[in-house]
Structure formats: structure tokens, C-alpha cells
């Protein structure tokens, strides 16, 4: 039995906008064990980042609010911590690599300043030790000549190096949980391969548990042990990676996998027309009753438009929210 590290239970995060109430995260539950990598996939706007920001309590309020749920980290509900206690957790026990590196690296401070600030705050190191720690962190993520780079500003680094600097910053306090929100989406494939390789190595060495948010199922197949599939603010399927790809249960997951062109398959035989999922994602402001995927589902039944299917076990460790299983 593995050790449970982070447990998100029934999380609901909403945005109160001029256009109405957006149920961005609507009853999401998933958990993370020590040293494990969980992959979170889903369409743009389905609530992947908002879930991650909720874990760190970084939801802008207003317009956002966590209205329900629990986020249990090592036995403590983070949603009940004081702001001061939460600050101690953030960047120390749980740290995050944000979707846009330029928004989270401060352009007016050197890379070194930004890393030393975190380690001084959390680990009480003096200036010199903190700088040494920063250089060490940059070296760990494979930045050449870290002694020099540590004094440079974010704009002086290439996209790939900036992403590494972000990882260095996120890892500088040896967090137990690393939340990586699309850490490689903006990067080229050869640089992406470097970063994924780096994350795997660091996980082996430091035992960090990782929540990997991405829309790229190729990245998920490569790095995750468990996969959470989200659709319109909900988890629709969750399973070990082999089962998600080998025997997907939810029609959305099935459709997603079939719609992907694959260089390895295409090249080996006659090309086939891609399977498409018709239609588009419903607006969060105006969600239909019942299953949110019903309007695009090839196996839709009358019941699907009326009642929302619960997330239920369909095999050991494999959960799916679909009325077809009844």
C-alpha cells in the first residue's frame, strides 16, 4: 500500500463573472501518492489549471471562490489553514511550475534573486548559502555555466532555459509535491524531450510526487503512472496509464484517443481517416443537465440528458462516469 500524500475531495471552484456563474471545477476528486506522477488531461477550459491553483489557494477572489471540498495534504485540510501557514506550504512543501513562464518569472529580478528569495524565506539560509543553493539548483536542471546564469535576467535566457530555471526554482526547496502546469507546451519537441527527461531523473533522485497537467496524451503516456481525464469541470475517468490507453471506458476518452494522428502508425500502413469527436465543448456558463459530454457522445441515451452519471469503479483502480456502465 502506497502512502497517500495529497487528496483532493469534492473540490468546487466557481467564478462569479458579469456573464454569470462559471462552475470551473465542479466536484473534482483525485489523489496523489508519495513519489507518484499523476497526469491530468482535458480540453482547454475544462478546469485543469483552476484545480491546481485551488490546491495552492491562489484563486483570485473576487471573482473566484472555492465553495466546497477538501484538500488534504499529509492529513491537514489546506482549505482550513491560515494565510501564514499556507504561505509556508507554498513553494516549500508544494510548488508549482506555471503555464506561462514569463508571467511567473519576475522580469526585473535576476534568476538568482528569485531562487534565493524562496530558499531564504523557507529554509532560513543566509545570503551566501542561498546563492550557492541557487547555483546548485540551476546545475541540477542542466543549465550550463550556472555561476554566470544565476546573475542573468529572465529575458536573457532562451525558452527552454527559462523553463529549466522555473523547474530549478520550483525544486529548490525539495518540495514533496510538484505541480507542473503544461511545463513543455511552449517548447519544441527536442527541448520538451530534455525537460521530461530531467523531470523523470529528478523524481528518481528526490522522490518528488508530480501532478502533470497537459493536453498532450503523448506526454501523459510517457511520464504518468495514473491519469485523470477532465471534461467541463468534472473528472470523467481515472485509471492507471496502461488502462486509460489500453481499455478506455468513457466515450470522451475513447474519442480523444481515436482522434489522434500517430506518426508511428501512419508510417507503417495505409493512412486512415481520423476519427473525429463532433461538436464543441458546452459553455461553462450554460451547462446542460445530465452528462456534459452527451451532446457529442456517439453512444448517447435518453437518460444521459437527464441525470449526471457518477464516477464509479469499472475495474480495479479504474473509475468512469458513464451511464453505459449501468
Amino acid at each position: 500500500m502506497q502512502e497517500l500524500l495529497l487528496d483532493i475531495r469534492g473540490l468546487r471552484t466557481q467564478f462569479f463573472t458579469d456573464d454569470g456563474l462559471a462552475r470551473a471545477v465542479d466536484g473534482v476528486s483525485y489523489s496523489l501518492e508519495k513519489g507518484e506522477t499523476v497526469g491530468v488531461v482535458g480540453e482547454s477550459g475544462c478546469g485543469k489549471s483552476v484545480t491546481a491553483l485551488s490546491i495552492l489557494r491562489l484563486i483570485p477572489d473576487p471573482p473566484g471562490k472555492i465553495v466546497d471540498g477538501e484538500i488534504i495534504f499529509e492529513g491537514t485540510d489546506l482549505l482550513h489553514l491560515s494565510s501564514a501557514d499556507m504561505r509556508r506550504i507554498r513553494g516549500n512543501d508544494i510548488s508549482m511550475i506555471f503555464q506561462e513562464p514569463m508571467t511567473s518569472l519576475n522580469p526585473v529580478f535576476t534568476i538568482g534573486n528569485q531562487i534565493t528569495e524562496a530558499v531564504r524565506l523557507h529554509q532560513g539560509l543566509n545570503k551566501r548559502d542561498a546563492l550557492a543553493k541557487a547555483v546548485e539548483a540551476l546545475k541540477l536542471v542542466g543549465i550550463p555555466v550556472p555561476e554566470r546564469r544565476v546573475h542573468e535576467y529572465p529575458h536573457q535566457l532562451s525558452g527552454g532555459m527559462r523553463q529549466r530555471a522555473m523547474i530549478a526554482m520550483a525544486l529548490s526547496c525539495n518540495p514533496k509535491v510538484l505541480i507542473a502546469d503544461e511545463p513543455t507546451t511552449a517548447l519544441d519537441v527536442t527541448i520538451e524531450a530534455q525537460i521530461l527527461d530531467l523531470m523523470r531523473t529528478l523524481q528518481d533522485e528526490l522522490g518528488t510526487a508530480i501532478i502533470m497537467i497537459t493536453h498532450d496524451l503523448g506526454v501523459i503516456a510517457d511520464i504518468a503512472r495514473k491519469v485523470v481525464v477532465m471534461y467541463a469541470g468534472k473528472v470523467v475517468e481515472q485509471a492507471p496509464v496502461e488502462q486509460i490507453f489500453g481499455s478506455p471506458n468513457h466515450p470522451y476518452t475513447q474519442g480523444l484517443l481515436q482522434s489522434l494522428p500517430r506518426v508511428d502508425k501512419d508510417a507503417s500502413g495505409a493512412k486512415q481517416r481520423l476519427q473525429e469527436i463532433p461538436g464543441i465543448v458546452p459553455s461553462l456558463l450554460n451547462l446542460p443537465a445530465g452528462c456534459k459530454f452527451a451532446s457529442r457522445c456517439p453512444s448517447v441515451m435518453p437518460q444521459c440528458h437527464e441525470q449526471e452519471p457518477p464516477l464509479e469503479p469499472v475495474a480495479p483502480n479504474h473509475y468512469s462516469a458513464c451511464w453505459l456502465n449501468h
Partner: peptide, 22 residues
């Protein structure tokens, strides 16, 4: 480039060529 393309299939294990540098 081809070795680095993520393939959406966990049963496919590829030998990755990791290019150095930018």
C-alpha cells in the same frame, strides 16, 4: 526529432535521442 515525438501509447518504449543545448 522523430525519436522525441511523444507517442500516445504507454506500451511503446522508444530510445530517445536527447539533443544537447538549444
Amino acid at each position: 526529432l522523430l525519436s522525441a515525438v511523444p507517442i500516445p501509447d504507454p506500451t511503446v518504449t522508444k530510445k530517445r535521442i536527447i539533443l544537447e543545448g538549444d
